[in-house]
């Protein structure tokens, strides 16, 4: 069976905007993603070396800010939902398939290295910038946060600035 076509981007944007608006109305906060990864990291470190989380400042500040188990976090539940929602969407649109996607001009090895390095940079940057494309840029734009909009400009501006140097990876 063929894959179903993607949704019209403006329609998808409208739905996404409404989801974000309803989320803000109900919970008083926007969407997010990297925060869930942070919770997972803190939980892992806590399990592997419990003593480390009480003496390293990053983890101490985290538990002061959040309290309780790091996995009992709104964003962790939200990301569990994302996995379910994306899976359902993939299922009904015939897009469920194990696949390592890379440009025909590039190789699987390069793609794997790029994904690790790119992921690490994004994870690191999202900590420094207090949020990623969802939590800082999109949700920040919805509430017109100065910091969120600066981060948004820096993410997309940075990506355009660096795009030329990594064009071989994609085109």
């Amino acid at each position: 069976m063929n894959e179903t076509k993607y949704m019209n981007p403006y329609l998808a944007g409208l739905f996404l905007g409404l989801i974000l608006l309803v989320t803000i109305f109900i919970t008083g906060r926007g969407l997010g993603a990297s925060g869930a990864i942070k919770s997972a990291v803190v939980a892992t470190v806590q399990t592997v070396t419990p003593s480390h989380t009480t003496d390293a400042k990053f983890y101490k500040e985290y538990s002061e800010e959040h309290g309780g188990s790091p996995l009992k976090n709104w964003l962790v539940f939200e990301m569990i939902g994302v996995v379910i929602g994306a899976f359902i969407s993939g299922l009904i649109s015939n897009r469920l398939k194990f696949k390592l996607e890379h440009s025909p001009k590039s190789t699987a090895k390069i793609r794997i290295a790029g994904a690790i390095v790119g992921g690490a940079l994004f994870g690191f940057g999202a900590q420094l910038g207090r949020g990623c494309t969802s939590g800082a840029a999109l949700s920040g734009m919805a509430v017109l946060s100065t910091g969120g909009l600066i981060t948004m400009a820096a993410i997309f501006g940075g990506a355009y600035a660096f795009a030329y140097f990594f064009r071989k990876l994609w085109i």
Partner: peptide, 8 residues
């Protein structure tokens, strides 16, 4: 942070 994310 934003620039690093853009690079990523």
């Amino acid at each position: 942070g934003g620039l690093i994310m853009g690079l990523g």
